[in-house]
Nucleic acid binder design. Structure first.
Lengths: 210, 210
DNA sequence: CAAGAAATACCGCAAACGCGGTATTTACTC
DNA sequence: GAGTAAATACCGCGTTTGCGGTATTTCTTG
């Protein structure tokens, strides 16, 4: 029996979700709240459900803050977000805050029940239209295979440089003379077109050369 | 009418997908290939479908390379990946390469058809179990508001340090004595618990202190 | 106002770095 | 087998850093 709570400010919607969930024989909605604050108070008493169905765009404390607080009180609780918004930034923040599912409000009753079951089974239900946004955020992290023509040895040394080792420490670590390490670093500098370790480390991390 | 191609190395599976798609009255599978190379050759002639259903884990050219090549020939083609793997790294690479959907091979026929329709409608169908991995990659970008108690001045200097300026350059830029800059850096070091610029820059970038 | 935090400034010295060289050995390619 | 790229090693010198101090001024806050 999957235990659920619903947080939703529209009374009719709240009632609709409550009834939908309780109509399924494998799940039960114990409480429905009109805002995050009430749910947090109830969580504080030690009770907690398996899954919380959360409407984003609530009055008072916003949904994303709510997720953060609820996850800090009851980290095991899985939060499925329901939204009318398809704003990339909101989605990104919600995911970072720890939401596990993200479905559109116009989803059908079957989709909602399915999403709950998928969540219970360890999955992350995400509406296709939301997923587009999620993937588009991802593609920004696309790595433009810019090796700058670094050789294997240079990459190895770059790794150690990023970890903050000095030339001498590196030379001992990879059994080279400190002079050789210096030469490699000189070459890395000229390939990356930088003139200091800080710049190099910054470039390596920003462009995922590590 | 949604035009599809299928790329799948198992003959029975290939045939099954082919028939499944053609059994739906709103879509049509024109070609089915056993490998990416053949599909790429056909793409090169100028023909292309709306959507390609691609099996990942193909012989010869691997699926991810395949996506990259196909997207370069026909950028408008939407690629849905089918996989048995749930490997985060593979998923990440496929998304970066430009795949738009990601569904598990054990998905039901209805789910597959639904995924195709969602893709055509501009969505990104992602199986709940795959989405878990996607979101877990995301949560790594979670910013743990860890200021380490840095003051505004220290943050300002940290910014400049990450950009690779020397103490003297910084002192000129913000109208301070080089000694003062040195003092601030000493303090930053002790707050971040690092002992070199490289370490500091790495920590600042990795933990989004910048 | 008194206390404390932050920002400012200065000193000195050992260690490390940045960069200009040169040169040999190894390995892969044509 | 000649040619090239990579990895290796060494030198020297001026600059920069890292870190141990101390100390004054400003700002905030109880």
């Amino acid at each position: 029996m999957i235990q659920l709570w619903v947080i939703e400010d529209h009374p009719e919607m709240r009632q609709a979700y409550y009834e939908l969930i309780n109509s399924a024989e494998d799940m039960r909605c114990a409480y429905s709240f009109s805002n995050c604050e009430d749910a947090i108070q109830e969580l504080s008493t030690g009770h907690h459900p398996d899954i919380i169905l959360l409407d984003i765009g609530l009055p008072g404390m916003n949904g994303i803050e709510g997720i953060t607080v609820m996850k800090s009180i009851a980290p095991m609780v899985k939060i499925i977000i329901q939204t009318v918004y398809e704003d990339s930034d909101k989605i990104f923040r919600a995911i970072c805050a720890g939401a596990i599912g993200y479905i559109l409000k116009q989803s059908s009753s079957e989709k909602i029940l399915e999403a709950i079951r998928e969540t219970e089974a360890g999955g992350s239900p995400i509406s296709a239209r939301i997923a587009v946004k999620v993937l588009s955020i991802f593609s920004k992290f696309h790595i433009p295979e810019n090796n700058y023509g670094l050789t294997a040895r240079e990459k190895e040394i770059l790794h150690l440089l990023v970890e903050g080792f000095t030339n001498v420490q590196i030379s001992k670590k990879i059994f080279l003379s400190p002079h050789t390490v210096g030469t490699h670093i000189k070459n890395i500098y000229s390939k990356l077109q930088v003139h200091s370790r800080s710049e190099m480390v910054a470039k390596a991390l920003k462009e995922n050369l590590i």
